[in-house]
Structure formats: structure tokens, C-alpha cells
């Protein structure tokens, strides 16, 4: 029997107002894995990720982090547990400098002490962040902004890193370098859940992939298996 998964979601129903965007979603992220979450626009990927971070109201079901139910917790408390999200659209602090954005990434108590060390690591991954550290985040290009958003999450010393559409609107070269970083930090033991429309990248990177469609998990399995299934490719992944 496998070890207890780091994140486990059971029969989750969640949404906005009275409308449930997610129904009966179950998903599991094993310790040390990269898990991909695929699906077309509007399938509910962002809602699922926001639910994990406590930003969306969970109507029923369970979200277990290392066996502990976290649904209903405040986003701040979930961050304190080590679940760090890189939100869609980056959500940087545009009027603060790159250095300040990174420092705020390490705001949570567990991350503050090791900030200098983790900062050095992040600046090795993304040297541009070091070069432009005094500039406002608002003036960065899209790719640089995504690097900053990921760097900001990495200095938070995440135990589980969740990314929502990290490749959205970026040039292939930049996407490549970002996924290289993700693979590298995963190799160093970080568990990752990444939601993407860009199926190719995820299928290359993740071990397990879930396909979300109309708020339900339509398929789940090892990425190799999904990559070979032509029906799935045609219907959901647009490959």
C-alpha cells in the first residue's frame, strides 16, 4: 500500500453563490509527485485550486492535507500549513519592487528564517529577478512576471506548490525554462499540482494527470497512459 497522499480531495462540491462549479471531484496528490490537472477553459480547474487555497466556498466533500481536513480554513491558515499557490494571472504587487514581492513571498513564519537562502536559490533559477530586483513588478514582461510569481511562491518554502495556468500567454522558450525549474524543484522533493490548458507540457512533466470536464473528473491516470489514448487526446486535450 502506498504512503498516505500529501493532498487528497474526496467528493468535493464547490462553487460561487448557488451554482456548483465542481461536483463529486476526487483527486489525490502523492508526496513528492507532480500531478497535472488538465481540462478546457471553464472546466473548473481554477475553482478547484481556489478551493484548495480556501478562496472558494466548499459546499460538501473533504480536502485533506496530510490527512487533516482543511476545507473551511482561512486562506492565510492554509498558507501557513505550507500549501502555496501561484495564482492565475500572477497577482503580483505591481507597485512594489521585485525584491519586496519576493520578501512578501516569505511572509509566513516558517519561511522567514530561511528567506536569504531560498532567495539565493530562486535567483539562481531566475537570474533576471536578481538583475532587476529594485524595479517595480508592474513593469516586468509577462514571462518575467511569471518567474517572479513562481519565485515568490518558492521562497515561501512550500510543502505543496499549486500552479494555476503557469504557461498562459507565454513564449515557448519561457514555458520551457519554467517547467525545467518545476522539474528541478520536484526532483529536490517538492510536491506539485499544476493546472494547465497546455496539455503537452503537463503530459511531459507530470506523473499522474487528471482531466476535468464540466466540473467533474472525466479521466485520471498516469500521463503516459493518457498520452497514448487517442480518444482522450482528441476529445479533451486538443492534441
Amino acid at each position: 500500500m502506498a504512503a498516505r497522499p500529501m493532498l487528497e480531495i474526496r467528493n468535493l462540491a464547490a462553487g460561487y453563490g448557488r451554482i456548483d462549479v465542481l461536483r463529486e471531484v476526487s483527486l489525490s496528490v502523492p508526496d513528492g509527485a507532480i500531478v497535472g490537472l488538465l481540462g478546457p477553459n471553464g472546466a473548473g480547474k481554477s475553482t478547484l485550486i481556489r478551493s484548495i487555497s480556501g478562496l472558494t466556498h466548499v459546499r460538501s466533500g473533504e480536502i485533506l492535507f496530510e490527512g487533516m481536513p482543511i476545507q473551511g480554513c482561512a486562506p492565510e491558515d492554509i498558507v501557513d500549513m505550507g500549501i502555496i499557490q501561484v495564482p492565475q494571472g500572477r497577482m503580483l504587487f505591481p507597485d512594489l519592487s521585485i525584491a519586496d514581492n519576493l520578501q512578501l513571498g516569505a511572509y509566513r513564519k516558517d519561511a522567514r528564517g530561511s528567506f536569504q537562502k531560498s532567495l539565493k536559490q530562486v535567483e539562481e533559477y531566475f537570474p533576471i529577478l536578481h538583475e532587476r530586483r529594485t524595479q517595480r513588478a508592474g513593469v516586468l514582461s509577462g514571462g518575467e512576471q511569471q518567474m517572479l510569481a513562481i519565485g515568490r511562491a518558492l521562497v515561501a518554502k512550500p510543502r505543496l506548490l499549486i500552479l494555476d495556468e503557469p504557461s498562459l500567454g507565454l513564449a515557448p522558450l519561457i514555458i520551457e525554462s519554467i517547467f525545467n525549474v518545476l522539474r528541478d524543484v520536484n526532483a529536490n522533493g517538492l510536491t506539485i499540482l499544476v493546472a494547465e490548458q497546455n496539455a503537452m507540457k503537463v503530459l511531459q512533466t507530470a506523473e499522474t494527470v487528471y482531466v476535468l470536464e464540466n466540473g467533474r473528473i472525466a479521466h485520471a491516470g498516469p500521463s503516459r497512459q493518457l498520452a497514448e489514448d487517442e480518444t482522450i487526446q482528441r476529445s479533451y486535450l486538443g492534441i
Binding site: L55, D95, L96
Partner: peptide
Amino acid sequence: NLTGKAMQAVSQNTTAARLMGIRV
């Protein structure tokens, strides 16, 4: 000051600030 920066973070993007673990 980190709290001073957190204050600015909250006004610039409250959701992002919460995702940093800042008690808004």
C-alpha cells in the same frame, strides 16, 4: 518593514496578500 510592505500588498491585491499568508 515587512509589515509596512504587507500593508501595501494588501491594498494592491488583497487576494494575493492572503495567498502570502498575510492576515488581511
